[in-house]
Design a protein around this nucleic acid. Structure first.
Length: 708
DNA sequence: ACCTGATATCCGATC
DNA sequence: GATATCAGGT
């Protein structure tokens, strides 16, 4: 016996780990040792003699499941070979491959990644002549995401548009027509998008009882992590796979649900007992991650949430410093302020224990430049994924064709790289090949030398499809080299580095199919084997930071329209989700938490700094909970002590409007824009001011000095 | 008929 | 940086 489960878990964790009979729902607060609990449960099950092959572990990323399995293996002193672990999508894909015949699917499955789906949408729109020449017609990305959302939330397209994109209601019929032909197109060419993977998997379980019963018997224990971020169909897959009274443990935290844009719904948590009558519910409430001041501030964020579960997070770490509110003059100087803070923190923590978090990918651009200049190494997570980069997709298209010659999106991509070949030629070539009548193809090859070379190359590749992945990739890279340079004359060296990275990842694979499906079903940032010696600062979107933790965390751009994102106002639940997102961000920190709130944002379009409104989430916080620092004009940070009877930012919301009464609209001063005329008052505390040279601005009263 | 390059506009988080 | 459209070229 290598571990003592009774000593190494707290009471609630122990209950959760040992409750191996029947359904269990674990509500696990942030930092409450959720992973630890799952790991011990796994180890416990196997130690009791359960065959690892009868465990199914569904997580948010494969890296997460791999890590849990490794840790459980270490406890046991033996590997946990045979546990099926990964994401819902990759599990579904595996099922579809195994049972493609029962489902009437093609032998070779083609998965459409985000870009592919959008391409198909653009194509069907074009072929139907919908919205031709209409500049304000929604873009392919918008259409594609609406279609996907409607499926994930299981709402009709019209209803979804009404709820979340009213302004597109005028295009309702057109969008419906596109959605219909999109799904026809997929069926015709044997294509599966991400959503199809889940729905076909469900279909497999509901329409083929034999298969379902077989799988039920096989997977005697099901563990689902991050249950708050599962959507309806994922919930049904779990129910169906486990069966009533099945041994299923779902772990999640409703307060950390941040994927509703993808159809995730806390309904799965709320109605767990309905799906699984007699389910036990266990709460993990002791926080082991953060020092008390960070936890207190985080709890404050949650207190204001409209819908919440009663939860009482506590910690025994009573030490620790207060979070800091950093107030740079602008988002530009924010980079410098944050950089200084990082250098200060780096004296105490290794770089990889420091993270900078932000709402969306582009928000770190400025900081990235500053870090490069300073020579601080960093690794960025989230934002544009490297498989989405044009050059990577180009190369993968050839590999996809080697695996499946009928892969239409790959064919289109590979062919349009060839000079003189555009969409029309491409489609004809494809039809010519698929129909078996190669006349058009032969003719084109004679008249276009580049095309001939490409087709010859693809054929050669297809003959070697059983070769190791890197053998194939090597050839593609050689073939692609001249194309890379002509396509990206300005920055091909940078892109070459990306291709080298792809080779690194490929080296770990034998089979082409597996390599390709992993690249679109797993986050490639986490795919390659990372050098444990490298010590990089972490830059990450909050979404990509889910489930992770660092000694020190700095959250940047805490201003209105950035965090919360301006898109949050699109639907009524948006704000609440942003709040949970902010909660997730803060609870990543163990010892140091910095909140950065610039006073102005650089407007690239109009080329000047525009005053920014403080994020409402920061305004809500009690000023006792953090220390405040303001940047002065010389660039140094000064301690800012809120004066008791003068209004600090925190009173702004509750307090009201005594600062300057709305009826005497005179002149005022602003730190950046100078003197301006107050035009209008917006309760509770905003003023519209006309600044000569800057124009009309809406600004919080706190940042204005009123003239008598 | 079809491809290619220039120009204006907009930008969300993920499998 | 990517997308969409338009004008020009073969």
């Amino acid at each position: 016996m290598r571990f003592d489960i009774h000593k190494e878990l707290n009471e609630a964790q122990l209950k959760a780990a040992m409750a191996t009979e029947g359904p269990v729902l674990v509500i696990a607060g942030a930092g409450s040792g959720k992973t630890r609990t799952i790991v011990y449960r796994l180890a416990h099950l196997v130690r009791e003699g359960l065959d690892p092959q009868s465990i199914l572990l569904l997580t948010f990323t494969r890296k997460a499941s791999q890590e849990m399995l490794n840790r459980a293996g270490r406890l046991l002193g033996q590997g946990l070979n045979g546990v099926v672990g990964g994401t819902f999508h990759s599990f579904a894909y595996a099922m579809l491959r195994r049972y493609s015949r029962a489902l009437g699917l093609a032998e070779e499955l083609t998965i459409l990644d985000k870009g592919d789906s959008e391409q198909v949408v653009a194509q069907v729109r074009e072929s139907q002549g919908i919205g031709k020449g209409d500049r304000s017609f929604p873009k392919k990305g918008t259409i594609s995401s609406l279609i996907s959302k409607s499926r994930n939330k299981e709402l009709g397209l019209q209803i979804l548009i009404e709820n979340e994109a009213r302004h597109l209601l005028v295009y309702g019929e057109d969008l419906q027509a596109i959605a219909d032909s999109y799904s026809r197109f997929k069926r015709e060419y044997g294509l599966l998008d991400y959503d199809d993977l889940l729905f076909y998997c469900e279909k497999l379980l509901t329409e083929h009882e034999g298969i379902r019963d077989f799988l039920r018997l096989k997977y005697q224990h099901i563990l689902v992590d991050e249950y708050q971020d599962t959507n309806l169909v994922q919930g049904r897959i779990v129910s169906s796979l486990a069966g009533p009274g099945g041994n299923v443990m779902a772990v999640g935290d409703d307060a950390q649900s941040i994927y509703s844009f993808r159809g995730a719904t806390v309904a799965n948590i709320l109605r767990f007992s309905e799906s699984f009558p007699g389910a036990r519910i266990i709460k993990l409430e002791q926080n082991y991650r953060s020092v008390q001041p960070i936890l207190s501030l985080s709890n404050q964020i949650l207190e204001r949430a409209e819908e919440k579960y009663e939860k009482n997070l506590f910690t025994e770490r009573s030490d620790g410093q207060k979070p800091e509110l950093l107030r740079p003059i602008s988002d530009h100087s924010q980079s410098r302020v944050v950089l200084n803070k990082i250098e200060e923190l780096a004296r105490e923590y290794p770089l990889h224990e420091i993270a900078v978090l932000f709402r969306s990918g582009f928000q770190s651009y400025n900081l990235e430049v500053a870090l490069n200049k300073q020579g601080i190494p960093f690794k960025k997570f989230g934002g544009q994924k490297f498989t989405e980069a044009a050059h990577i997709k180009d190369v993968l298209a050839y590999l996809r064709l080697a695996a499946n010659p009928a892969d239409l999106p790959a064919w289109q991509r590979a062919m349009t790289l060839i000079p003189k070949v555009g969409p029309k030629t491409c489609q004809r070539l494809y039809d010519s090949i698929v129909s078996g009548d190669g006349a058009y193809l032969a003719r084109s090859r004679r008249s276009n030398e580049d095309l001939d070379r490409a087709v010859t190359f693809i054929h050669r590749l297809q003959e070697q499809k059983k070769e190791r992945v890197f053998v194939l990739l090597e050839q593609v890279l050689e073939f692609y080299q001249p194309l890379l340079k002509s396509r990206f004359p300005d920055d091909y060296p940078r892109r070459q580095a990306g291709l080298d990275e792809l080779s690194q990842i490929a080296a770990a694979y034998e089979e082409l199919d597996l390599f390709l499906s992993d690249l679109c079903l797993e986050n490639p940032d986490q795919l390659g084997q990372r050098d444990p010696l490298e010590d990089n600062l972490v830059l990450s979107t909050v979404h990509s930071a889910k489930g992770l933790e660092w000694q020190a965390v700095i959250i940047i751009d805490l201003v209105e329209e950035r965090f919360p994102s301006k898109h949050a106002l699109m639907d009524k639940f948006g704000m609440e989700e942003e709040r949970r997102l902010f909660y997730v961000a803060c609870t990543r920190a163990k010892e140091y938490l910095g909140l950065s709130m610039p006073d102005s944002l650089y407007n690239r379009y109009q080329r000047f700094h525009e005053s920014a409104l403080a994020s409402p989430f920061v305004l809500e916080l009690s000023p006792d909970g953090f220390d405040e620092f303001r940047e002065d004009m010389s660039g140094t940070m000064l301690v800012h002590r809120p004066i008791k009877d003068k209004k600090g930012p925190s009173q702004a919301k509750k307090g009201g409007d005594r600062q300057a009464s709305p009826d005497k609209l005179g002149h005022c001063r602003h730190k950046i824009f100078g003197r301006g005329k107050v035009v209008q008052f917006f309760p509770p505390n905003r003023y519209q001011v006309n600044f000569p040279g800057f124009g009309l601005k809406k600004i919080m009263g706190d940042y204005l000095e009123m003239e008598e």
